[in-house]
Design a protein around this nucleic acid. Structure first.
Lengths: 143, 143
DNA sequence: TTGCGTGCAAAGGTTTTGCATGGCA
DNA sequence: TGCCATGCAAAACCTTTGCACGCAA
């Protein structure tokens, strides 16, 4: 009888597919992408990794907190972003520019203050991994 | 030659489908729902409104600003919420409990403060109509 | 009469799932 | 050997689109 919270760690293998996908993340750190992007990029360089494999790996990385997943209003596909040096993305809020797609990590005191006030005023404990502040960054405002 | 920004108002008809959909919104004010929910509820009461018609009407209501549309991380389907008395939803932020689905309208001074600080610190002008703070409300924490 | 809204059907894109196979430890 | 990851194929969903028809103004 095994449960999710099992003490024994699930074993993991280093596979070609996973390696290629992680390479993709690192080469595209800070950039928004979809599962399709990964799939097609790998295909373009002659690596035939299956769609399902891409989805399964991205899902896993999200679960581990290494990858940020979110959805944009105008797109059916989920977006992902990998950020080198931000591997605890479930601990702080994020904001995204809907024009250039960049994601900013709001690791700031006033943001924590904000979360506390939301809790105090509305009784809502904010879930950082599922919240995305959306707007437009200064670089894109002049466009 | 007509354009989107035409001076002449597009004509609108009062139709059965639209009436039924607006009824649904009013009966479900403050509740999160999907296009599918609307479709199935109408079907359940014997009203065979087409899926496409539901989508088209919801889309239109969103464009008019009467309806809030957003996407949750874990669902492929878009979510909608109608709020009686909150017809200027593009002016304040919202927070949603991912357990019960309720949406809270953050019409509060400290929220505006927060938006200003985001602008000042990160250079991002927050778009309220596309942002959803996600978390868990007190009522659902005990569950 | 005019033109918008609807129903219908079909297509397109995204994501998941079951199963057999292959490969790493 | 044992078990996880992958590839493959199919299915499930969500959403959009084109077209012809009906109905309100």
């Amino acid at each position: 009888m095994s449960k999710d919270g099992d003490v024994t760690m699930k074993q993991e293998y280093k596979t070609k597919a996973r390696g290629l996908i992680i390479d993709y993340l690192q080469q595209n750190a800070g950039v928004r992408f979809t599962a399709r992007d990964v799939f097609e990029q790998l295909k373009a360089v002659g690596e035939n990794i299956d769609r399902a494999t891409v989805y399964r790996n991205l899902e896993k990385l999200c679960t581990e907190g290494k990858l940020l997943r979110y959805r944009e209003n105008d797109s059916q596909a989920a977006c992902y972003q990998y950020s080198e040096g931000h591997e605890q993305c479930d601990r702080h809020l994020h904001a995204q520019c809907l024009s250039c797609g960049r994601v900013f990590h709001l690791e700031n005191e006033f943001v924590e203050e904000f979360e506390k006030k939301i809790q105090a005023t509305y009784g809502i404990g904010v879930d950082c991994s599922k919240t995305m502040i959306v707007g437009r960054c200064d670089d894109c405002k002049t466009e």
